[in-house]
Computed example of a mutant assay.
Amino acid sequence: MSIDAAAKFDPSRAAEYETQSRIALAGYDACHELAACMLAATLGAGSSARILVAGAGGTAREVISVARLEPSWSFVAVDPSKPMLDLAMSRIAAAGLTERTEPVLGVVADLPEDQPFEAATLIGVLHHLPGHEAKQTILGDIAARLKTDAPLILAGNHHAYASQPLMMAAWAQRWRMHGATPAEIEIKLGKILQAADPPQSEAAVFALLAAAGFKKPLRFFSSLFWGAWIAFRA
């Protein structure tokens, strides 16, 4: 995530993020659990690995889910939003994972390129980055810090929201299912339409990955606009 994109994740947004993310993404925990399983299946159960967690702020589910499965793995958690990184590190501390997790307040480009990681995650970030260039930049920065053939877990919304009115309507019903009033739903959907810029399709996601130096993308999870993929550093 860029510094500019991080500005909207102020202390008030950080405080509500954990609840809101689980409503907005049906299957939130399942996606993170499957991401952990995909990494373990790729790198080998019981192996040692150092994992780059880009855009780590918030619930810290990337770290917690993977760490529960693989006790020998360590993490570098990067986020440009201090409130969001603080929230993530509080969840990591509560899970007893502080010694295995290095927090970095900043962006992926701040990390050295001569200490490559065995794997990386970028979950719930790409659709918050405005424009093609910002998306391409963060994927390229991650690729530059991975070993050859290292896996990347990429997850986030794709499709132009307004192009899928039925899924938008279903999204509204999910908010209603969790107690939101019609007025609140209208506000939430309005914010989504104005504040996010997802890739326009899965093909667009694959093109971004290829341009950044990743190969063999494979989708392993989907929920309305959300998709999750694994790809490998070429």
Rank of each mutant, 00 (worst) to 15 (best):
L224H: 01
H128E: 09
P182E: 12
S74V: 15
F75V: 03
P217L: 07
G58L: 05
I230H: 14
T19E: 10
G131S: 02
A15L: 05
G156K: 01
K147D: 11
H178G: 07
A88N: 03
P71N: 05
A150W: 13
P11G: 04
E62T: 09
S48R: 15
A210D: 12
I3K: 03
A95N: 09
L193A: 15
R233K: 15
E202Y: 04
A7M: 09
R176S: 14
L52K: 00
W226D: 04
E133W: 03
A212K: 08
T101L: 04
E118K: 12
G131V: 02
A180L: 15
P151C: 11
L97G: 01
A45N: 11
A231V: 13
P217H: 08
Q136S: 09
C37Y: 13
E102V: 13
D197F: 01
L224P: 00
F206P: 02
L126P: 00
E113S: 15
P199Q: 00
W171M: 13
P116Y: 14
T137V: 13
G190E: 04
Q173C: 14
R61I: 12
D10Q: 02
V205Y: 01
V78S: 03
A36I: 14
G57L: 09
G44A: 12
Q194W: 10
M1Q: 06
P71Y: 09
A109C: 10
A15T: 01
A143L: 01
M38D: 11
S65G: 10
M177K: 13
L52M: 03
G44N: 11
A49T: 06
D86W: 05
Q173L: 15
R22D: 07
A155S: 03
G124K: 01
T148P: 08
H128R: 00
